[in-house]
């Protein structure tokens, strides 16, 4: 497990640094954003984005953090990292021919696969949680206060959303030998989902509805997770990991 964690260390750290840098920049920009929000709203071309701006106007800095950190930063960057980690998990080994030596050790395939999944999951979630934990301190720099437990609740939901993306890609990787094809398919899927999200009449069909500003504001204001959605995301991960284990057990190196 330690070697699996070490293998993803640099990418995990880079992900955290970029996520934190985006958050710092966004937080420091908040006073100016708040001052010019009315003017900015008139420039927004899409209804969905205008709704988002309305929520920020209504709820203030917390909605701004949800938009900048969770919806933009974590969804885009975290989603990318989740796909990169997962697409290479097994398919990457097969492509470079190292699957045989990976499997040839006296360790069960279940253990090998779960270790790899857990290491990736760790590096996907920890940067989200740690960067979210810095929000109250960053807020104090711009005279804003945040409730840390509520923010962490949002971060937990964000992690489950990213883990669902990670696990779907992981399942594809367990069955395939072409990581790039998996990556491109997931990228196209993400672009398609985002396009759906941006069209007001179709936005409810998009997976990004499960991790958007409205939902995070609901968690932050209500103090509890939207259990139906959260459990569904967790169930997607569990089902995908179980399916990956089944596929991997029969896999020929």
């Amino acid at each position: 497990m330690r070697s699996e964690l070490r293998a993803k260390l640099w990418m995990g750290l880079a992900y955290f640094v970029v996520l934190e840098a985006l958050l710092v920049a966004a937080m420091l920009y908040w006073p100016q954003f708040a001052k010019n929000l009315e003017h900015l709203k008139s420039l927004i071309p899409l209804d969905v984005l205008r709704d988002m701006a309305d929520k920020i106007e209504e709820s203030g800095a917390s909605a701004y953090v949800h938009a900048q950190h969770f919806f933009k930063g974590c969804n885009a960057l975290g989603g990318l990292v989740a796909v990169i980690f997962a697409m290479n998990a097994v398919a990457g080994e097969a492509q470079r021919g190292t699957l045989e030596i990976w499997l040839a050790r006296p360790l069960s395939r279940r253990r090998l696969l779960l270790e790899r999944w857990c290491a990736g999951a760790f590096w996907i979630c920890v940067p989200v949680l740690v960067s979210t934990a810095t929000v109250p301190w960053l807020g104090s720099l711009v005279d804003e206060t945040f409730d840390l437990p509520l923010l962490l609740l949002c971060a937990v939901h964000q992690c489950l959303f990213l883990l669902a993306i990670y696990s779907i890609t992981f399942l594809a990787s367990a069955a395939s030998s072409n990581p790039l094809a998996i990556g491109f398919t997931m990228l196209l899927g993400a672009i398609g989902e985002l396009s759906l999200y941006m069209i007001e009449r179709l936005t409810h069909w998009s997976a990004f509805r499960f991790a958007d500003v409205g939902l995070y504001q609901q968690i932050y204001d209500g103090g509890s997770l939207p259990w139906r959605i959260t459990l569904s995301l967790a169930a997607v991960s569990v089902v995908c990991v179980l399916a990956a284990l089944r596929v991997f057990a029969r896999r020929t190196p």
Partner: peptide, 21 residues
């Protein structure tokens, strides 16, 4: 049986195809 762990624990193996990290 299963994933062949019992056999792999009792034997060692050098693959024919060379692909290393």
């Amino acid at each position: 049986e299963g994933d062949g762990l019992a056999i792999r624990q009792r034997a060692s193996y050098a693959p024919g195809e060379i692909a290393l990290y």
